[in-house]
Write a protein that binds this DNA or RNA. Structure first.
Lengths: 192, 192
DNA sequence: CCTCTCATGTAAGACGTTACATGATTCA
DNA sequence: TGAATCATGTAACGTCTTACATGAGAGG
């Protein structure tokens, strides 16, 4: 997996603790990824065992808030990171979306309900859009790679919103036009 | 998970066997999803045990090729499917991409190598684009939902290609311009 | 006072991938 | 003759999610 390497990548910028790693991946990279502690902490432990990072208990932080464990990348970690960075990605993009999985089958359900669900998605992406635009503004003078990633996040969001609005209209149209829904049979006959 | 429900959805169109279900999900829905037999067959078994589908050994197929097991949706399966279809999606879109995960860290590696890896992605999406456009053409008179999904697949592909080409140029620019790479420090100071 | 954010972790279970086994047919 | 496609399945392994436990500080 690449989480391991992403952690090593973040530690190139500076030493970090687990909580910070999660926040950075989720908020700095275009708001495109999610990760949970169940992945972060075991991975940090493993990286430490493999000698790719070292851990420093953050003693002078102990007074206020919970104890922090800062991680630093080692020479070996650096080497492993660079090897990964320059290798070709093992896999293609993976996309999973419970909404889109439903969407394909909306022809079998109630149109009004479909529109409600689409509207829900529109609101979701509008909220996300706000975050992503703010994030992009904040990154204006940063590392071009991080900035480009943030731009991709915004562009994808825009595309999705336009597509959702268009889909909403087409569903509305098909509610009034009785001939539009008869195409199900064609697919049936077409084979796979 | 939604694979279970996607299978029920496909069985709304017509009876299918496992192999066919895989092909349909991969090729009919915008070439956006992948699935493997390790998911399909256990899921079919489970659906059968739950009484949501029934299995008919395809006897009159036995002469040529391996034995087929056709699955039909039951009344109960139909009911469960419709409940799922009209419920709100449990989760947001999940995107994972080993390429994008590398991309954010290209500032730490060799620029020439980065461009090679970007070029590789461009070729990959160009090939995918061809498939997706053909798929869309084939679906011209089909179910609007399936068609809209295919359109989304093409649009996303286009967006990704444009973004990759632009990124390629920007990496090239940053190779010549020494001031462009100094922004790493800013992020460091910015906190998380 | 209550909620949010900060901070670390584990255990169980769900989900997904890879690799293997098997074998016929079709097409170049 | 060899590769691709059709067809079904399992076992082992890896990854991811969810739920839990714990506790302090900040701000409204």
């Amino acid at each position: 997996m690449s989480l391991k390497y992403s952690i090593l990548g973040l530690l190139q910028y500076r030493d970090m603790h687990g909580y910070q790693i999660k926040k950075t991946i989720e908020n700095q990279f275009g708001h495109m990824w999610t990760i949970n502690y169940g992945q972060i902490y075991p991975n940090l432990k493993k990286l430490k065992d493999e000698g790719l990072v070292t851990m420093i208990e953050d003693a002078n932080h102990g007074e206020k808030g919970p104890s922090r464990k800062m991680y630093s990348i080692t020479g070996k970690g650096n080497q492993v990171f660079l090897e990964w960075l320059e290798s070709l990605p093992e896999k293609n993009m993976i996309l999973r979306d419970p909404f889109l999985m439903r969407f394909v089958f909306f022809g079998f359900g109630d149109k009004k309900r479909s529109i409600e669900i689409v509207d829900d998605q529109i609101n979701l992406y509008k909220a996300q859009m706000k975050k992503r635009r703010e994030n992009l503004e904040r990154l204006q003078h940063h590392d071009i790679y991080v900035r480009l990633m943030a731009e991709l996040g915004v562009s994808m969001n825009e595309l999705l919103l336009e597509w959702l609005e268009r889909s909403r209209k087409e569903i509305g149209k098909s509610m009034k036009d009785p001939t539009a829904s008869s195409s199900r049979r064609l697919w049936r006959e077409n084979g796979v």
